[in-house]
């Protein structure tokens, strides 16, 4: 009999291909409805300048996020998007609170629940927001630069990652030092470096430094604790 993991991949593939077809039908439907097809020249020219960045980043994202989101979590996350600012934080906090590792089957279940719920909530909020916006302009007033709480919305990311990072930094301060120093140096020289570039740099530095520390015996206490049960 197929394992839960194998079945997850089968379903994940089916849903991903279905999603791909439906998304590609969107511009087709618009073009048919409006009887307006893009000129190949403009389409390729417009696409080229974004594809040169987005296609390699897309591949890097799959490789760097997949190990952290679990199998079903990855299939779902890449369909609904907003991974770095939504799906990853939800998964991280869910795993941290539940105490499971993402590589265990329990972790796979927890990460799937986290990503699925986040996708549902986000999709519903955006849809309701769009409706409210078309009818009343409410959300626009709430989040526009003239809104009194606008400054808080501008700082969502520091607040989000501060809340998640706190326990990670506290528990794993040794692991945090190397990537922190490297990221700060990169930003000191090039403050405009976007998160999409910083993430791979920071993750690779963290992994290498942690592996070296492991080899040097920095985590021997943890190892002993595990061996002694």
């Amino acid at each position: 009999m197929k394992s839960y993991f194998d079945k997850t991949h089968t379903w994940g593939r089916i849903w991903t291909v279905a999603a791909l077809i439906i998304f590609l039908m969107m511009p087709v439907a618009f073009s048919i409805h409006l009887n307006a097809w893009p000129k190949a020249e403009y389409f390729f020219k417009g696409l080229a300048s974004v594809a040169i960045i987005f296609y390699p980043t897309g591949i890097i994202e799959v490789i760097s996020y997949a190990p952290l989101l679990g199998a079903a979590g990855t299939y779902l996350s890449f369909v609904t998007g907003n991974i770095a600012n939504l799906k990853l934080p939800c998964t991280m906090s869910a795993l941290e609170t539940s105490g499971y590792s993402v590589s265990s089957e329990e972790g796979e279940v927890i990460s799937t629940i986290a990503v699925a719920v986040s996708s549902i909530v986000t999709t519903v909020i955006i849809a309701v927001g769009v409706l409210l916006m078309s009818v009343t302009g409410f959300v626009e007033r709430l989040t526009s630069p003239s809104s009194p709480i606008y400054p808080a919305f501008q700082q969502i990311l520091p607040c989000l990652f501060g809340a998640i990072g706190a326990t990670y930094f506290y528990k794993h301060w040794k692991i945090s030092i190397a990537p922190f120093v490297v990221v700060i140096i990169v930003l000191a020289f090039s403050g405009g470096t976007q998160v999409g570039v910083l993430i791979p740099v920071s993750v690779v530095v963290a992994l290498i430094a942690t592996h070296v520390m492991y080899k040097k015996g920095v985590f021997d206490k943890e190892q002993q604790r595990l061996e002694n049960g």
Binding site: S64, P67, L68, A84, L88, M92, S101, V102, S103, Q155, L157, P158, L160, F161, G162, I164, G165, Y168, F169, K171, H172, I175, S176, P179, F180, V183, I184, V186, L187, A188, G191, G192, T193, V195, L198, I199, V201, S202, V203, V204, V205, A206, L207, A209, T210, H211, M213, Y214, F219, E222, Q223, L226
Partner: peptide
């Protein structure tokens, strides 16, 4: 699967790497 402690610290490292990219931008990003 080879080593539990190694696996735990490496997955923590990957998470921390991501978090620090955002923390770094909050400290020095333009």
């Amino acid at each position: 699967g080879k080593n539990k402690v190694w696996a735990d610290v490496m997955s923590a490292a990957a998470f921390i790497g991501i978090i620090i990219a955002f923390v770094g931008r909050a400290i020095l990003g333009t």
